[in-house]
Design a protein around this nucleic acid. Structure first.
Lengths: 142, 142
DNA sequence: ATATCTGCAAATTGTTTGCTGACGA
DNA sequence: TCGTCAGCAAACAATTTGCAGATAT
């Protein structure tokens, strides 16, 4: 929480941008939501809590959070983009997605990562990033 | 090719739908394109080859092809949906995507599949499907 | 004959942008 | 003060839908 605020502050300072109330509110709401929110969902939370912050501002601020490494975009096949928190000590993680209730579970698996590296190497590919999503029913929905 | 035409014909017959020239043309163009096309790209190919088939028809037909298992949707983080061919003897495959030239390489890796199953089991999850995409530079682009 | 298609244009959805007044440094 | 920001509405892009005439069965 404090860490992220600090990151944002530093990024803003270093890019002749300005610290604004809206940016603070949106960042707080985003962190409080725990990630995996869409822009519209976050807009909703933010609107409820406070003033008349526009959807465009939410989009712009989420873009900003991605730029400074606090958030990251993901598309799960739903048409809309979701944003998740980049945790400090977490390394890359992947997702289990319940197709019924929409719950998203994160997991990390170094073995899978290693096999992916191998596949890339076999194909003479330089990996930038990857994503793995497993769709199905969670324990509660099946 | 013939196999896919047959599947489509059977599906149409079994759903009181109608065999039309457009559907044939679109299926042929889709197969000939070899998959990984977007609706608009396919529309383009189809338009060139023949008559005034509308974009909406391409969308509707691609939906139909997905329903009868000939095609499958994928979203690579570009905003638009791509459609790929479901091959008869291929089992599930994943993708290496070159972020520079856009080339898509398919691969299969049973070990990764197995590890995914394990992750799902550990989380008490019933898997429907999954997707794995590795983004980076291909041999020619790096 | 009749129900399903098609093409077109209009509607939707998610997201971005231009503009003008507001505001932080 | 001055440049960046916010809110709003309009613009956009990808996809879907409604409608009226066309066409398989």
């Amino acid at each position: 929480m404090e860490r992220e605020k600090e990151i944002l502050r530093t990024h803003i300072a270093g890019h002749h941008m300005k610290q604004t109330r809206q940016r603070e509110v949106i960042l707080e709401a985003f962190l409080k939501a725990g990630g995996h929110v869409s822009a519209e969902e976050l807009y909703y939370k933010v609107s409820k809590r406070a003033s008349s912050i526009g959807l465009a501002t939410v989009y712009r601020t989420l873009g900003l959070l991605c730029e400074c490494g606090i958030a990251q975009q993901r598309e799960f096949g739903e048409g809309r983009t979701r944003f998740e928190i980049v945790h400090e000590y977490h390394q890359h993680h992947d997702h289990l997605i319940c197709t019924k209730c929409g719950k998203i579970i994160e997991f990390e698996n170094p073995n899978i990562e290693r096999l992916q590296e191998k596949v890339a190497k076999d194909n003479d590919f330089t990996v930038y990033t990857h994503k793995l999503e497993i769709y199905g029913l969670c324990s509660e929905c099946k």
